[in-house]
């Protein structure tokens, strides 16, 4: 069986916030065209991992290559070029609340200056249709939408530029189970339609089973298990077993709080591309 080339290769990635060592020498390969889901408890540094790959947080040590190009220590210009391959769905949607829906969706297209505003609006309508939204939302502002609709608009924004790589940060958090399934379905379809490489992070097992080709488990700053989705139920790894069955008892030490997540939300990123 021929293996697809590696799209994102991570070796020995380290990232600390003060005394809090969040990532402690993490290794991970993301094969091109596959959907990898990173699972792990709250505060284990899943968001930090995504932000390090995007260069939104500078890594302390290690190497991250995207199509063979190094992200760690790259110049702003290089980072800007690499980031153009990505689309990201943020946990809280992170829609620009000063802009109407269509401008949010078309933001990446307008930033690339390939289209004028009228064309961009047309494109936004097409892209919104793919996530099941119609013309009636075009001129609404993000604050006027429900949580599920915001997630859809954010998904539309992430796929608008037809990126090679899609990141999904907790795509179903804060949604009811039905809406969560709708979003999972949309994520799955978007990835397949674009033929994109996808990296998602979640602790929602329903989501994992729906969108993953491969699963990697992050615990104490390293990937402790990685395999195909089908293998997850017979991984033979007590940590993975405890996590996927959601048991309080087991080898995973439950942290008292989640310093990593807090650090990420507030930590300013490097200035710009």
């Amino acid at each position: 069986m021929n293996r697809p080339p590696v799209k994102i290769r991570i070796r020995g990635l380290r990232k600390s916030f003060g005394d809090n060592r969040v990532l402690r020498g993490l290794d991970l390969d993301v094969p091109a065209g596959r959907s990898v889901v990173v699972i792990g408890g709250s505060g284990t540094g899943k968001s930090v991992l995504l932000k390090c790959i995007l260069g939104l947080l500078p890594a302390d040590a290690g190497s991250i290559t995207v199509d063979g190009e190094e992200v760690v220590g790259a110049s702003n210009a290089t980072l800007d070029r690499i980031r153009r391959k990505f689309g990201m769905l943020f946990q809280g949607a992170a829609l620009f609340d000063s802009l109407p829906v269509w401008e949010n969706v078309a933001f990446g297209l307008l930033a690339r200056r390939q289209l004028d505003r009228a064309e961009a609006r047309e494109r936004a309508l097409e892209i919104l249709a793919r996530v099941g939204l119609g013309a009636e939302v075009l001129d609404l502002f993000p604050a006027e939408l429900s949580g599920g609709m915001q997630k859809r608009v954010a998904l539309a924004r992430a796929i608008a530029t037809e990126p090679e790589i899609l990141f999904f940060d907790e795509p179903t958090t804060g949604l009811d189970p039905i809406m969560a399934d709708v979003i999972n379905e949309l994520v799955r379809r978007s990835v397949e339609k674009l033929g994109a490489t996808a990296v998602s992070i979640t602790h929602d097992m329903a989501s994992v089973r729906k969108i993953a080709d491969r699963v990697a488990m992050l615990y104490e700053g390293v990937i402790i298990w990685e395999g195909a989705l089908a293998e997850i139920d017979r991984s033979g790894n007590p940590y993975v077993d405890q996590f996927i069955h959601g048991r309080a008892e087991g080898p995973i030490r439950v942290l008292q709080m989640a310093p990593a997540d807090r650090a990420v939300r507030g930590e300013p990123s490097r200035h710009g591309p």
């Binding site: 939104l56 829609l95 710009g272 591309p273």
Partner: peptide
Amino acid sequence: AELGTMRVTEQIDALLTLATDPLR
């Protein structure tokens, strides 16, 4: 307040992923 909210709701990170420099 506006930029601070954009920071904590990850809108500034979102700008970067959309090939837009928040400083510009």
